[in-house]
Amino acid sequence: MNFIKNNLANAITLGNLLSGCIGAIHLILDDYHVTAICLILSLVLDFFDGFIARALKANSNLGTQLDSLADMVSFGLLPGLVMFKILEPFGNNLSGFSLPFEIKYFGLLITLFSCLRLAIFNLDEDQKYYFKGLNTPSNTILIFGLYYAFRHEEIFVSLLNNSLLMIALTVFSSWLLISPIKMIAMKFKSMKLEDNYPKIALLVGSILILIFFKTVGIPLVIIYYIFVSLVFQKQLK
């Protein structure tokens, strides 16, 4: 019984990793619908592994390391591959300028900075009730959300067909991961209403965005998340 209790959260983390691997494979195979399902599953499992570990009081150094390694695939490799797919049609042509290399590989910059962000997070003891920089799951939702809306609804076409804008988004996304900007974390330090205004504003606004914009609202929720976090910077501590 103790074995199950001590390893249940780790098993869920490995499920996150498996889902991320399958999602990455299907993205390469151009089956983005399966990738979307795998991403949703990874997000759910990533939430519940920590929740269950805390509930069962089964937190461990092994679980911490497994969590980061799983996130590196599901929310590090995957968004890098998405940007790789977005940049692939441009070949070595950057908005009219011929380059000596395929610019699609530039998309993997997101993967490199996701790895750096996860390593920094593991060493930073201040990020208990807020994130410093955009967390990797949110960054993945932003990048994949744009790609999914583009492929599924033919939205953001002019944005994703502009190689310079996509390079700029890659750089900006990578910087956000390690930026000093404080971001809202859905962890409650207290149940006082005034201490949770940022979370309430984020939750209500996100629901409304998804109701009104549906698929398009997926990346817009992350943009709204960044905006709300900037507004409440002084309250995040």
Results as ranks from 00 to 15, higher is better:
M1Q: 02
M1G: 04
M1Y: 02
N2I: 01
F3D: 15
F3E: 15
N6H: 05
N6F: 00
N6P: 02
L8E: 14
A9E: 13
L14E: 11
L14Q: 05
N16S: 12
N16P: 06
G23N: 08
G23L: 03
I25V: 11
H26L: 09
I28A: 15
I28T: 12
D31N: 15
Y32K: 03
A36C: 06
A36L: 12
C38L: 07
L41Y: 02
V44N: 12
D46A: 00
F48I: 04
F48L: 12
D49R: 00
G50P: 04
A55P: 02
L56Q: 11
N59L: 03
S60F: 05
S60A: 07
S60P: 04
L62M: 14
L62H: 06
G63L: 01
G63C: 04
L66H: 09
D67C: 01
A70H: 00
A70P: 03
G76Q: 02
G76E: 06
G80S: 05
L81G: 10
L81W: 04
V82I: 02
F84M: 06
K85N: 15
L87W: 07
E88Q: 08
E88T: 02
F90V: 07
N92M: 04
L94K: 00
L94H: 02
G96I: 00
G96P: 03
G96F: 01
F97E: 13
S98Q: 14
F101L: 06
K104S: 15
F106D: 12
F106I: 09
G107W: 02
L108D: 13
L108S: 08
L109D: 13
I110K: 03
T111P: 06
T111V: 00
L112P: 06
L112W: 05
L112C: 12
L118Y: 13
I120A: 08
F121D: 08
N122E: 14
L123G: 15
Q127K: 04
F131D: 10
N135M: 05
T136V: 11
N139T: 05
L142P: 11
L142R: 04
F144E: 09
L146Y: 15
A149E: 06
R151V: 07
E154T: 01
F156P: 07
F156L: 04
S158L: 10
S158Y: 11
S163H: 03
L164W: 07
L165G: 09
M166I: 09
M166Q: 10
M166P: 09
A168D: 02
L169M: 12
L169N: 03
S173D: 05
S173I: 00
S174N: 05
W175I: 03
L176Q: 12
I178D: 13
I178N: 14
I181M: 11
K182T: 03
K182H: 10
M183T: 07
A185Q: 12
M186H: 00
F188T: 08
F188N: 11
K189Y: 04
S190A: 04
M191L: 13
M191P: 02
K192W: 08
E194K: 10
D195S: 06
Y197M: 03
P198N: 06
K199H: 05
L202V: 01
L203C: 05
V204S: 14
G205E: 13
L208N: 11
F212H: 04
K214M: 07
G217F: 02
I218C: 10
I218M: 06
P219A: 08
I226R: 04
F227D: 13
V228R: 06
S229Y: 05
F232C: 13
K234T: 09
Q235Y: 11
Q235K: 14
K237Y: 10
